[in-house]
C-alpha cells in the first residue's frame, strides 16, 4: 500500500503501473494480483483507506479547528491518492460517486461543531464549503503549487474566516 501511495504521488493515476508498484514493494506481481484485480481496484482500496482515515480523524477531533487541521495532516500522508483522485474525478463516474458520498459524510462531521444561530441548512452549506476548500487546498499542496504550511495555522485562518470574516465589525 505504501509503495502504491508513492507511485501514485510520483506518476499520477495514468502513469502509475502495477509492475512498478510491485517492484518497489518487493513483492511478486502474483502476490499483488492475489489481492487486487486491477490498478483501479487497487486505487479504490487506497481511496477507501484515505476516506476512512479522514472520517476517523474528523470524528475523533474535539473541535472544528482540530478537524480542519487533521484534514490537512491526513491528506499530506495520502498525497498520491489526492493527486490521482483529482486526475480521475471527472473521468470515472464510480469514483466521482464515492468522492461525493465521502464529501457528504465529512460535511456531516464538520457540521457537528456548527451551532445556532446558524440554521441547519446554513450549517450544511458552510460545512460543504469547508470540505471543498480543504479538498482543493490538499490538491494544491499535493501538486506542490503552494508551500506547505503548519496545518494548525491553516485551520486557524479558515475558522477565523467563518467566525470573524476578514473585516472588523
Amino acid at each position: 500500500m505504501q509503495a502504491g501511495l508513492e507511485c501514485f504521488a510520483k506518476s499520477g493515476y495514468t502513469g502509475a503501473r502495477l509492475t512498478d508498484i510491485v517492484a518497489s514493494a518487493g513483492v511478486t506481481t502474483g502476490a499483488l494480483y492475489g489481492h487486487f484485480e486491477s490498478k483501479s481496484s487497487f486505487f479504490d482500496s487506497l481511496f477507501q483507506q484515505y476516506g476512512d482515515r479522514l472520517t476517523d480523524a474528523l470524528g475523533e477531533s474535539a473541535s472544528l479547528k482540530e478537524q480542519l487541521a487533521s484534514w490537512i495532516t491526513v491528506s499530506r500522508e495520502y498525497r498520491g491518492v489526492v493527486r490521482a483522485s483529482a486526475e480521475i474525478l471527472q473521468r470515472r463516474p464510480e469514483h466521482a460517486a464515492s468522492r461525493r458520498r465521502l464529501r457528504e459524510a465529512l460535511a456531516g462531521l464538520l457540521a457537528w461543531h456548527l451551532r445556532e444561530p446558524l440554521t441547519q441548512r446554513d450549517a450544511r452549506l458552510i460545512a460543504r464549503m469547508l470540505v471543498d476548500v480543504l479538498d482543493q487546498y490538499a490538491q494544491m499542496e499535493a501538486a506542490e503549487w503552494i508551500q506547505r504550511r503548519d496545518p494548525l495555522k491553516v485551520a486557524d485562518a479558515l475558522q477565523s474566516m467563518v467566525l470573524r470574516g476578514v473585516y472588523q465589525p
Binding site: S63, L64, H113, R121, V162, L163, R164, G165
Partner: peptide, 21 residues
Amino acid sequence: DQVAEMMEALLGSGLGSVVSS
C-alpha cells in the same frame, strides 16, 4: 443567492460565534 450570501459573510465580518468547542 444562498452561496453568494455565505461567501459575502466569510469575506465580510463572519457569521459570529457559531462554532462550539
